[in-house]
């Protein structure tokens, strides 16, 4: 069996600054050894460890979709030692990617269902992966209605703005973009917090409708009662958690919530699963 701690060497192929505060950048990686790309088989919702020799590793959700071939992309917020160093790196620099890690969103269960994606801030990365995956011509027919409620603090803080604008124009996905505040008189979308927009725009919950919720704790806290009121059962609300991680494979011991390791048993959990576990995330 291969060493699960050994990263694949990758080259930075492209760096895109996503937000007006320049704190969020999307890094596109290409594998140095073409064989590694074939081994890196992933699904939307999984994450990987980005590895920089001399700095360390960070667990980051995969923002590219498995339907996008030839590269991986990750949107990284500049906050700690590794991410700060990553933001100073340049196209063609070499680093490592270790993964894919963790469980994807439960795509087998989600097929044939209505999907409501609710995201806030920079937690939109694996949701972007999911949307691109579902909108792929080969996959779109596998899902019923798709709703996306995506909020950021300001218009300039929205990720993937060009793509989001493209999705807005499509008939096969219902986009509900929102910002907390804006003084832009031309802002054509919603203004209001994600829970409020969810209340106004999300379809009612039923057996055939699943919500995938990713965002800051405050957003999740206030969105949850709204989904309850809309009739979403706890096992129809899917969430992705974060915790400090090192190994990413359930061995180093720090990311547990109760007996579950966020890295290996998660990061995807249903709200029903989480109600039985300590809130240590």
């Amino acid at each position: 069996m291969k060493n699960p701690y050994l990263p694949y060497p990758v080259r930075i192929d492209e760096i895109v600054t996503e937000t007006e505060d320049k704190n969020l950048r999307t890094f596109k990686f290409v594998f140095l050894n073409p064989g590694d790309q074939k081994e890196f088989v992933y699904q939307a919702g999984q994450f990987a460890e980005l590895s920089i020799a001399g700095k360390g590793e960070i667990p980051i959700g995969i923002a590219s979709s498995p339907t996008e071939k030839g590269f991986l992309s990750f949107t990284v917020n500049r906050v700690g030692q590794v991410t700060t160093h990553l933001h100073s790196m340049k196209v063609n620099d070499t680093m490592g990617v270790r993964g894919p890690l963790g469980n994807a969103y439960p795509w087998e269960i989600l097929e044939g269902k209505n999907i409501v994606i609710i995201g806030g801030g920079f937690a939109f990365t694996t949701l972007r992966s999911s949307i691109v995956y579902m909108l792929d011509p080969k996959n779109r027919s596998k899902f019923k209605d798709i709703h996306v409620i995506y909020g950021a603090r300001t218009p300039g803080m929205l990720l993937y703005r060009n793509e989001v604008a493209q999705w807005e124009k499509r008939k096969d996905i219902h986009m509900h973009i929102t910002v907390d505040v804006t003084d832009d008189p031309d802002w054509a979308y919603n203004v209001g917090f994600v829970p409020t927009i969810t209340e106004q725009k999300a379809p009612a919950g039923d057996d055939d409708t699943y919500a995938i919720v990713c965002g800051p704790p405050i957003m999740i806290k206030f969105t949850q009662p709204i989904l309850d009121d809309l009739g979403y059962a706890q096992d129809h609300i899917i969430m992705s958690l974060e915790n400090r991680m090192k190994c990413g494979i359930g061995m180093c011991g720090r990311c547990n919530i109760g007996k579950e390791f966020v890295c290996k048993d998660g990061p995807v959990f249903t709200l029903a699963q989480l109600t039985d576990l300590p809130k240590e995330y």
């Binding site: 701690y5 020799a53 360390g56 090192k246 061995m251 180093c252 011991g253 720090r254």
Partner: peptide, 21 residues
């Protein structure tokens, strides 16, 4: 069994190591 993973660089070479945590 809990452990940490840390990089330690000296000059231009270094090692990734694990330590008890």
């Amino acid at each position: 069994w809990c452990f940490d993973i840390q990089d330690e660089t000296r000059g231009k070479s270094g090692r990734r190591m694990r330590n008890w945590d």
